[in-house]
């Protein structure tokens, strides 16, 4: 790893009281047991600019999250990169996204990760308060962890 602190970050986002929304957190807990030693695994329920505080100092960041595109089956794993979000202008500063974080970091002279990967699982239910994952999401969890591990290994290989 080439980051300033020599470590990679897995940043899992979600609310563990909102059903499938917590799938990234569940994956993080499994990943923590098997991830290489140079990887920090962090779970957060925060969003927007708060995430910059987590990402600052890392060169490689893997984000795990839930997503609802309604365009694929629950349990499907979608991969995005930093470039997928380049052209977007957010309508409200409440919904600051990666491009805003990067601009803020660069403008302020803060280090921003050069490698960002996003793995998001298509989920089914995240409006009811509850701690259970829906069956399709629960059964795809191990694949989510496997894919995350592959991203981390691929980064390790090129660094």
């Amino acid at each position: 790893m080439t980051g300033p602190n020599g470590r990679a970050l897995v940043l899992a986002m979600g609310n563990d009281l909102l059903g499938d929304d917590a799938v990234g957190l569940h994956a993080a807990r499994m990943l923590r047991c098997v991830a290489p030693g140079h990887v920090d695994v962090v779970e957060t329920g925060e969003a927007g600019f708060a995430l910059l505080e987590f990402m600052h100092g890392y060169d490689h960041v893997l984000i795990l999250d839930a997503i609802q595109t309604l365009e694929c089956q629950p349990g499907s794993i979608l991969r995005y990169s930093r470039e997928d979000f380049t052209a977007l202008l957010h309508p409200s500063p409440h919904y600051a996204g990666l491009p805003d974080l990067e601009r803020l970091a660069r403008q302020s002279g803060l280090h921003f990760p050069t490698h960002i990967a996003i793995l998001a699982m298509e989920v089914e239910e995240m409006r009811h308060i509850g701690e259970e994952l829906s069956p399709a999401v629960a059964s795809a969890l191990q694949h989510f962890v496997r894919d995350a591990l592959q991203v981390l290994i691929s980064w390790n290989g090129v660094s």
Binding site: N15, A47, I63, A66, I67, P91, S92
Partner: peptide, 24 residues
Amino acid sequence: EMAFRAYDPCHACATHALPGQMPL
């Protein structure tokens, strides 16, 4: 939008979002 942003409303009480894509 400014009218309600002034109140700093927080509705979902569960807000977090995959960063990036928030079209209006």
